[in-house]
């Protein structure tokens, strides 16, 4: 009542919760939100909720919350390891992709088993840019709820190989200038030097790299992208 400093206690407990959560999240890897299954999503909410209690619920001790956080993270870690090491374990823990359209026909029984409605299917098809069911060869509902579709051969987009056209390899673009500063390490990686860069800049009427916000160079295609601070928008 008189000496208990609630704000200070919450501050210390929040620091503990924040860094614990950060380390635990790093331990659990780089799975993206879009790749999460429903169970992963619920696990994330539960772990977040325990961390929130650890941070601000000062009516209870911090230690049991921390143990809870560690236990849930440990359990997720074990599940992840099991999924990685055992194919059977992965099948049971994360499930398997299900075919919901086969040879253009909707698999009603499979959809019923998955509790996946026709409107869900149509919505996800529209999201993929498919508005006509006749165009679909196969549609697979992935374990994370995303729909993968394979169009019938006659509706698939043409590729350069279909047209017998040779195409150059697209590589990764290297950032040569960022925020007006030349990144020397990337110049060497892209196989160019500062003199070449300054020549290219002068060719575009730029006197100094400090006028450039971002410059990227693709060594494979030889294309140089330059964005100046001064934008000429009319």
């Amino acid at each position: 009542m008189f000496a208990l400093n609630e704000a200070l206690v919450v501050l210390v407990r929040s620091i503990i919760a924040f860094f614990t959560l950060l380390i635990f999240a790093r331990m659990l890897g780089k799975q993206q939100i879009s790749q999460l299954t429903f169970f992963d999503y619920v696990l994330g909410i539960t772990i977040g909720s325990i961390a929130a209690s650890l941070s601000v619920d000062i009516t209870t001790r911090a230690w049991p919350h921390w143990v809870g956080l560690a236990t849930w993270t440990g359990a997720v870690f074990i599940l992840q390891e099991t999924s990685i090491r055992s194919k059977l374990g992965d099948r049971y823990l994360t499930g398997e992709p299900s075919i919901v359209i086969m040879n253009g026909q909707i698999m009603e029984k499979t959809m019923k088993k998955l509790r996946y409605t026709t409107s869900d299917l149509l919505e996800q098809l529209r999201d993929k840019g498919v508005f006509d069911l006749n165009k679909i060869g196969f549609a697979v509902l992935e374990t994370n709820g995303q729909l993968s579709i394979l169009l019938k051969p006659e509706y698939q987009p043409v590729t350069p190989s279909d047209l017998k056209i040779t195409s150059s390899n697209a590589g990764l673009s290297n950032q040569l200038i960022y925020d007006g500063l030349v990144i020397e390490a990337n110049l060497a990686r892209a196989g160019v030097d500062r003199i070449w860069l300054e020549q290219q800049l002068r060719a575009q009427g730029i006197n100094s790299p400090s006028e450039v916000y971002l410059a990227g160079y693709d060594a494979n295609s030889g294309s140089l992208y330059i964005d100046k601070y001064q934008d000429n928008l009319s």
Binding site: A3, L4, V9, V12, R13, I58, T59, W63
Partner: peptide
């Protein structure tokens, strides 16, 4: 004692 133990004990017990 309270400022020393406040980070590890229940607020309700202190109260």
């Amino acid at each position: 004692i309270v400022p020393r133990i406040q980070y590890s004990v229940e607020k309700d017990e202190i109260n």
